[in-house]
Amino acid sequence: MTEFLQHLVNGVSVGTIYALIALGYTMVYGVLKLINFAHGDVYMVGAFSGFYISHALGVEKEPTLAKALAVFVGSMMICGVLVFLMERFAYRPLRHRARLTALITAIGVSLFLEYFMQLSGWFGPASAPFPPGPTPRFFPQPMSFETPDLPLGELSIQKVDVISFLVAVGFMLALQWVVYRTRFGTSMRAVSFDSQVAGLMGINVNRIISGTFIIGGVLAAVAAILVASSRPSINPLMGLMPGIKAFVAAVFGGIGNVPGAMVGGLVLGLAEEYVAGYLLSSYRDGIAFALLIVVLLVKPAGLFGTFRPEKV
C-alpha cells in the first residue's frame, strides 16, 4: 500500500510539471494552430535563467525566501521576454505562409536555443559563464528542502513536492481565471475561434498572440524552477524529453483545450510512474505513448478536445 501511495505521490509530482509545460503548447496551438516545438527549450532557458539569478544573488551561500521569489519572478520575466522575441521575429513574419513553414521554423528555433546554450562561455565567472556550455550544471537550491518528519511511516513526501504541487495548481487556477473571466481571456478565445473576424471586431490580434506566447513562456519557467529545485542537474538539452512528453500530454487532453492539458499531464505522469513501478521500467515511455495512440483511436480529438467550439 505504501508503495502504491508513493508511486501516486511521485506520479503527481511529475505530472504537474508535464501539465505546466503542456499548457504552453496547448494555448499557442489554440490561437495560432502552431505547434511551438521550441517550447521545451524555453523550459530549459527558464532553468538556466534561475541558475544565473541564483548565482548573482548568492543563493547557494544563504538561501532565503526573498531570494527564492526573486529567482522565480526573474526567470519568469526572462522567459516571457524570450518567447515574446521568438514570436515577434521568428513566427510573426511567417504567420500567413503555409503552416508547415512555421512548424519548421519552430524546430529551427529549438535547435538554435539548444546549440547556442552549448557554446562555451564568452563572459561571466567560471562557476556561471554565459553561455553555459554543454556540461550539466548544478542548480543552487533556492530553499532548504530537508524532508520534514511527517507521520507517514515509510511514505516519503518531499517539502519541495508539496510546494511544487501547490504552486502549479495555483498557476493553473490563475490561468483558468484569466482565460474565462478577463477581457484578455475573452479576446484570446475569440482569436482562437476565428482570428480574422476577431480582428474585424477591433481586437488587436498581434497583442493577443504575443500575450498568449508570454503566458506559455512564463508557465514553462515556473515548471523549470520547480523541477530544478528538486532535480538540480541542468543542461542545455534538458528540455528535449519533457518537451515531447508535454506535447503528448497536450494532444492527449485535446490540443487547444486548457483543462485538457492539465488532465493530460497528470494522466501521463501517473501512467509512466505505474508502468515503471509495477511493470517494466524499460517500457516506461513505450506504454505512455501506446496509451496516447489508444486514446486518439477512440477519441481522435483527445480526451477533452472538440473539433469546433471554443478552442483556447
Binding site: H7, N10, V14, V227, R231, L237, E273, V275, A276, S281
Partner: peptide, 16 residues
C-alpha cells in the same frame, strides 16, 4: 530496473 539517457526522474524505479 532500467532508465534511459536523459531521464531526470528515477523515483518510479527507486520506489519499486
Amino acid at each position: 530496473q532500467s532508465y534511459k539517457d536523459g531521464d531526470q526522474d528515477f523515483k518510479a524505479q527507486l520506489t519499486a
